[in-house]
């Protein structure tokens, strides 16, 4: 059991996160900027790891740019975007976990846990079932 759609969604989600953190990092300073860069590197690492699970060159390619669901023009909006991206990725990885087994599933759970943790570190409230609450 291994859902190519869920793998592709995770790769695309990571591409979106990498793009978002480029913007987020540019709007932050000092400690928060360092935290954004750490998150960026973590997402790049997961992107490569998940893409390697896809056969051949079937992994989706990143978009040139992504829409943000809010204007991101200052540090506050950048942090809100970081929370949103991380919480949305939790759901993407929960979907992936549900469609694979063994080590891949363990990786998906770990990735979801890292994303939920980063969302809280960025100031989002913890949730029983972490997801982007701006869309509920």
């Amino acid at each position: 059991m291994n859902n190519p759609e869920a793998l592709a969604a995770a790769v695309s989600g990571e591409d979106a996160a990498i793009y978002a953190y480029g913007v987020i990092g540019a709007l932050l300073n000092a400690g928060p900027r360092r935290r954004a860069l750490e998150a960026l590197r973590a997402h790049q690492s997961w992107r490569e790891r998940i893409a390697q699970l896809m056969p051949g060159d079937t992994a989706p390619t990143p978009a040139i740019a992504y829409d943000f669901p809010m204007q991101v023009i200052d540090a506050g909006a950048a942090i809100a975007l970081a929370q949103l991206v991380e919480n949305r990725l939790v759901v993407v990885y929960a979907d992936l976990a549900a469609t694979c087994e063994g080590e891949r599933r363990a990786d998906a759970v770990l990735a979801a846990s890292e994303c939920a943790t980063r969302a809280v570190v960025w100031g989002a409230p913890s949730q029983a079932f972490p997801h982007d609450t701006t869309s509920t």
Binding site: E5, A6, A9, S12, A20, A63, V85, R88, F129, S135
Partner: peptide, 24 residues
Amino acid sequence: RRQLLTRSTGLAGVFAGAGVLSAC
């Protein structure tokens, strides 16, 4: 919340396009 816990990979559609952010 029920959708959150029960939807299959179609959830990516809820989040539009890329699943996290929609590509421009």
